[in-house]
Design a binder for these strands. Structure first.
Lengths: 189, 189
DNA sequence: ATATTGACCATTTTGTTCATTTAGTCATTT
DNA sequence: AAATGACTAAATGAACAAAATGGTCAATAT
């Protein structure tokens, strides 16, 4: 990948993470990236496509990060735990996601809504597929994979992002523990 | 309670449920309630207080509804299940909550944000207290009551309100079943 | 030739003004 | 004494002007 394209992506990622999508101007991205504004448009059709590409790489990165630690020979739980941990270490990179999540909720920028929807679908499809495999192998109870994926995702969001809107953030150890306790083991004694 | 006050409350509840808080005018409430506008202000200091009082009664109603079916002699799970079921039957009355939830998200009316925050705190405090009792009695695992309450609440919202934004709504039997499966029993075999 | 650029343009967003609407009051009526 | 609706001050939003921004392209640099 050309040097300039990379510079642009980095500048945009930084700006989006810091100010959000809407509040980031293309002039600003150009300036931070040390390129002329026109140059951006030789690599990206539009501001929206720039965001799209950044989020797409993020998705790829996340998938790779998950696959790195997931081992088909291990149990579903062990893999879920490892992947969860991996994501939690990611939180710094999550700065972008946090900002986009916030912008989606507070401003509702259409481009951001779309990209977040795509991100959510991708994640849900991925989890769903893992769950289906685990059911197939008889590792977990027979449950509706789609609803289960949906709830796992919501729970992750609640623990990682929503909790800290009114409380002290939870450490990644705490989150992993909680996730396991509530979702996998259940509260039953 | 005076007849007129009741009329006003009913009219306002209906209007708020149908059009939301912001889009409901006091003239409209007066007309529907068949009273002069001034009359409203002999019972309520402001529009906001009118909403506050309506939501307060709703909270009381919900608490009563829960207490009706909760039996201290039964297990925490059985009671949780019963209360959940009771709430799900409430969904019609939830029309107001649905509208307010939507208004909070889409318009962000300050008065609505405040009242919803109060509602959430009340519910969380209530669940938390029940959880503490259950831990005390040794009925459930020793968990952080505040976080547990938070997650139960988020899960309820996710199942009842959020799921149906992209899928067919779940029946109350399904929801109760799911709630039990994921939260109480866990997916472990 | 090819890559890069920033002045430029069309469109969107933001700021401002002003007429309309609405929450809340109070003198009058019931 | 209770209820009312015309009235007022404040909030809202429609309409318009000004500023900002996304995207283009002829000119420039490599």
């Amino acid at each position: 990948m050309s040097n300039k394209k990379q510079q642009i992506i980095e500048a945009a990622t930084k700006s989006f993470s810091l100010f959000g999508y809407k509040a980031t101007t293309m002039d600003q991205v150009a300036k931070v990236a040390n390129v002329g504004k026109g140059t951006i448009y030789t690599f990206f059709k539009s501001k929206e496509e720039l965001l799209d590409e950044i989020v797409s790489s993020l998705i790829v990165e996340m998938k790779e990060a998950a696959e790195e630690v997931v081992d088909p020979h291990l149990s579903f739980f062990e893999n879920a735990h490892r992947a969860l941990y991996r994501f939690l270490e990611f939180r710094k990179k999550h700065q972008l996601l946090i900002k986009l999540l916030q912008e989606e909720k507070e401003i509702g920028t259409p481009a951001v809504q779309e990209v977040m929807k795509r991100l959510e679908s991708t994640i849900l499809a991925y989890i769903k597929q893992k769950i289906e495999a685990a059911i197939e192998k008889g590792e977990i109870k027979n449950c509706n994979p789609e609803i289960t994926a949906f709830l796992m995702f919501k729970m992750y969001i609640a623990l990682v992002f929503e909790w800290e809107q009114t409380h002290e953030p939870l450490s990644k150890e705490q989150i992993a523990e909680l996730f396991e306790l509530y979702f996998l083991k259940g509260l039953s004694k």
